[in-house]
Design a protein around this nucleic acid. Structure first.
Length: 273
DNA sequence: TCCTATGTTGTATG
DNA sequence: ACATACAACATAGG
């Protein structure tokens, strides 16, 4: 279920482990989530290391580990987590027995830090070093940062002029953290049809898109990022998969179709081509 | 049985 | 080289 705000919620689920030393590491070494990752190095480095801090950006999380004694820079390690479609982080009581889809479990004095992912579209990354890995540093500027300007959006839409705006909003290189539900929510609020080619948005629509992107990110983080609760019924979110769902603004029927390879919901009374 | 699912990536085509 | 479209990945649940 993870987009921007859900990722922030799951990041915090490992907070009980902050400051704790890792006593043991359980790994499903051959699970797809470890593709491209050296699980032996991961186990060696994290066993005995202390969890120092965590951060979330876009749909990524980064956990920083250091020496259990807190001195020296030898043994600094970084654990990257992407939740894919079905990934979750949670903390279980000490002594927890890993279940089928619990691909990584870090046993600490404050409980077991669990990464679970049935479909395994998620990914675990591991790196040693004094500085965060390059993939983390190179993430696009957050939508809620100063660097995310109307002009940056306009430039990007011009380059993707022929693609439907819905597909363009899913591109992480410009809209980090936006996923299927947030894209639909933003377009609905901005009153833009999801099939509209990105290059055909008017300047006013681009400004509106930029404004609603920031609005949805800010409020999703405040609601979903705190408790994982569904957004209220004044949002499109709870209506989009309902049979006979109605637009909460117009009270007219919602429509669904596959756009940009993803099922998309919109309000025809409000979003026109 | 068949369809769907809040994601990304490799590959083919233009 | 760049932009675009889509199958593939793997599992569970309706």
């Amino acid at each position: 279920m993870p987009e921007l705000a859900e990722v922030e919620f799951f990041r915090k689920q490992w907070n009980p482990g902050l400051g704790q030393a890792v006593r043991a590491v359980r790994v499903h070494a051959h699970a797809r989530v470890f593709r491209g990752t050296d699980t032996t190095a991961l186990r060696t480095a994290l066993t005995g290391a202390r969890l120092l801090s965590s951060a979330a950006a876009a749909k990524q999380m980064l956990f920083r580990f250091g020496d259990a004694k807190g001195h020296g820079h030898a043994g600094r390690a970084w654990l990257g987590v992407h939740l894919g479609m079905t990934g979750e982080l949670r903390t279980e009581p000490s002594g927890y027995a890993p279940q089928k889809h619990d691909h990584l479990v870090l046993a600490t004095g404050a409980g077991a830090l669990v990464f679970t992912d049935p479909r395994m579209f998620g990914k675990i990354d591991f790196a040693l070093g004094d500085t965060p890995p390059a993939w983390w540093t190179r993430l696009a500027p957050p939508i809620l940062s100063e660097a995310f300007t109307v002009e940056a959006v306009a430039v990007f839409l011009r380059r993707r002029a022929r693609a439907p705006i819905k597909a363009v909003l899913l591109m992480q290189e410009r809209f980090p953290g936006i996923g299927n539900w947030m894209a639909d929510e933003v377009l609905w609020r901005a009153a833009i049809h999801p099939k509209k080619p990105a290059g055909r948005l008017t300047p006013a629509e681009v400004r509106s898109l930029h404004r609603e992107l920031r609005w949805v990110c800010r409020h999703a983080l405040a609601l979903v990022g705190k408790t994982l609760a569904d957004p209220p019924r004044t949002w499109l979110f709870p209506h989009r998969w309902e049979n006979g769902g109605l637009c909460p603004k117009t009270k007219q029927p919602l429509q669904r179709a596959e756009i940009g390879g993803r099922t998309t919901c919109w309000s025809p009374a409000r979003q026109k081509l």
